[in-house]
Amino acid sequence: MDTIKRDPRKEFGKAVAELAETDERIVVLSADSGGSAGFKDFAEQHPEKYYEFGIMEQGITGIAAGLATTGKIPVFCAIAPFVTCRPYEMFRNDLGYMKQNVKIVGRNAGFTYSDLGATHHSLEDYAIMRMVPGAVVLAPQDVGEIRSAVKAMMDYNGPVYMRIGNGAIPDLKKEAAFIIGKGEILREGNDLTILSTGSITGEVLCAAALLEDQGISVMVIGLPTVSPIDCEIIKYAAEKTGRIMTVEEHYICGGLGGSVAEVIAQSCPVPLKIHGVPHVYATSGSYEELLRYYKLDAKGIAAVAKDFIA
């Protein structure tokens, strides 16, 4: 893991801007949210491809669908709960049911709007967005993966929801091509597999190192595509380590854990621990405090894993 940390939103905006240089179809829609989504430069350099609508997430989601029917690839990025929960029916009908090529990006997701409270946390987005047939749900784990996931979602012809965080995050691996629906072994191990998604994977890798020091060998698999889930790699992990734990910055119901449970229960039954945020409106505090409070920091994850395999 690299010690250098990079800003996910800024890099996301840059990645979209780079692709928009050569792809005339890409347009950016803003709900008074463009600057914070890393689109400040883009808005100045490409005013003809940048549409500001003000704070109307329902309207924008429908407008994006209409634009997509004319051949555009609209990218709409705003605070995660406001692009998922609020316009959910528009995502379901106008993008999902209509199969429109629109990219919805929830920024400041998970706990990253930490002390702003539960209205601004996004802890159900994996669950609700993966319910829409044909919708791809992505949660890249580091900045390099955000960049490659942006390319992959533009290449995919259909609705995509991508979650990104807020604070600077470390690079976990070398930037490589992103394949939608594929997980990746990030660390080998034999006693337990931890499946993780999103930027919390950095904490998971640290937890695996802590556990190694205690004589517990953990395989870590990154699943940056929450839907469609990589069934094959889950089955492989179940067979290899016989125990699986999922970690996500999301409620313990319906998200990555729920998705993995659906695979395990039906294809490869092994003991499973779903670790995430309990199904309550979370408390507020700094991001680091919240991770510690809900045992989603490296130490907390290691402790939960140790209990699970005890």
Partner: peptide, 18 residues
């Protein structure tokens, strides 16, 4: 794919813009 009310005008906006 209309049916849920209050969707058509937004979609039409996007079409008219495009």
């Amino acid at each position: 794919n209309t049916g849920a009310l209050g969707h058509g005008l937004s979609i039409a906006d996007g079409m008219a813009l495009g």
